[in-house]
Structures are given as structure tokens and as C-alpha cells.
Amino acid sequence: MIRSEGLTRRFGAVTAVDGLDLVVERGEVFGFLGPNGAGKTTTVRMLAALIAPTAGGAHIGELQLGRDNRAIRRRVGVLTEAPGLYRRLSARDNLLLFARLHAVSDPSSRVERYLRLFDLWDRRDDLVGTLSKGMRQKLALARALVHDPDVLFLDEPTAGLDPEASRRVRELVESLRSKERTIFLCTHNLDEADRLCDRVELFKARIVALGKPAELKERMYGRRTVIHFGDRPQGLERALDLPFILDTEWADDALVVGLSDPERENPILVRRLVELGAEVRYVNELRVSLEDLYLDLMEEHDA
């Protein structure tokens, strides 16, 4: 659905985006992660046909950036980092404006649908300036969706939302995915990205890493089993003579074992530990957060 080849944008001597090659499939939730100033906003602006690339190009579906910019803007919805709403207009008038600019048929009922979806119907005639930060964020999200776009660019969609509203946004993203909508998610909330995204790209002017979160973690850290004991057995790791063990380390009273095929090797490992007299309390897979992965990869990239 989104395809870019060598997408580049320079501002004078500064290269904000450097030769970005990207393919995002229809119905995919794609996480675009990177530090502030990494070029995420510039990338979104180029892909949403707001600014032109200095070099390279991109397609949204069959539409070509540069040639079909207006048609692209009809098919994409953009949630900018700041809600950017008209404070002197009511919630309903804000949405009606955008529904009309997108030539939505029957804009009133469409606006009503989205105001109800985001629990804003009761506040529809209130000026945006009187709404809470969370309500404004929901309204901005409704604005990005009001024309039912095929591709949605979301920049920090849950910023400023309470946990309940954040969960509703995540559920909405899930439901949009099930409707084959493509979602390009820029966020610093890595837990959210981990939960929502089919694939993530770590980005800092150019690609740092790309893949499914689980695959990236495995590639970086391997698969590791954590074994918790009743009492920490002394010298146990030296007695473990199984050939498939890649490495071992202690984390407090738990033994962390690197394995290449834990589904096959875990039962053998546990049996051997019991044979050696260890009191195994429980075994689990080491969960690495996307945040750990992100920080390690960025550190590696900077080095």
C-alpha cells in the first residue's frame, strides 16, 4: 500500500531522510520509531503529499507521489503530533469542516458517527477551547478518520489520553487493521508499538532495523530461558554439559540460558537440572521489551 524507493529529503546541508526504501502492506500496522529529530515527521509529510522529496519517490497504492498528490491526500488521513484544532469552533464544526473539504457525502451523519465513536457527542456544540487535552486528541483522531481513509498516518495517537481512552484507540487501530486499513504509526510509546505493530522500523534519517518486533528481539538477543530455583545451586552452570546451550548467566537467583530451539531443548535442560539436584521452581522465556531493543539498537547505530 505504501512503497518508497530512495526517498530523500534535504533541508540545506541537513539530510532529514536519506534514501528510505519502504514497503508497507495493505492492512498492516507499521511502527515507525525513532528519536526526536530522526526525520519521522518529514517522512510522513512526504508520504502524505505535503512536501516534496529532494530525491527518490513513493507510491500510495497505485498513486504516485508528485503526480497524484491531491488524490493521495484524499486517500490518507493524518493525525499530526499537535491536535491542531480550531479552538473557536465547536467539536462538530471542526469535523464538519474536514468532512466537507474531503467531499464526504452526508457529512453530518458521518461526523455524528465519529463523535459518538469517541464519546464526544454530548460535547458536540462546545468550543474546542473548552475541551480537555484528551478530548482534543480524540477529536483530532476523529478528524483524521472522518473521510474513511485507506492509509492512516498517526503521530503519537495516545499522547495525552487516559488509560481507558488509550485502550479504545488501540482497539480502534485493531479494528481498522481488520478492515484492511493501512496504519503508519509514529510513536515513542514502545509498549504500544510492541502490542499494535505487525512490523516496526527503527529509523534515524535512515533505516536502523526493520522487522517484526519478535524477530528483531530474537535477532538481537537470541532466545533465552530463565530458570528459577528454590536455592541457588553453586557451580550448577559448570555442571551443565548440554551441547545445545549457547551461554549462561545468573540474574539474581535465576539462571538465564541461551538456546537456539527452546521448544525442543527446554525439557532436556530441565530434566538435566533435576538430575543434578537442582530444585526447579518455574521456567519462563526471557521477555525483552521493545524499549530495550530500541535503546540497544540506537546505541549500536550511534556507535
Binding site: L50, R70, V76, V78, T80, G84, F98, L101, H102, A144
Partner: peptide, 10 residues
């Protein structure tokens, strides 16, 4: 900061 959403329309 309302110009960018406006510019993102057709």
C-alpha cells in the same frame, strides 16, 4: 498549529 491538518486535505 492547525495549518498542517488543513494542508493534509485535498
Amino acid at each position: 498549529q492547525s495549518l498542517e491538518p488543513l494542508l493534509a486535505t485535498p
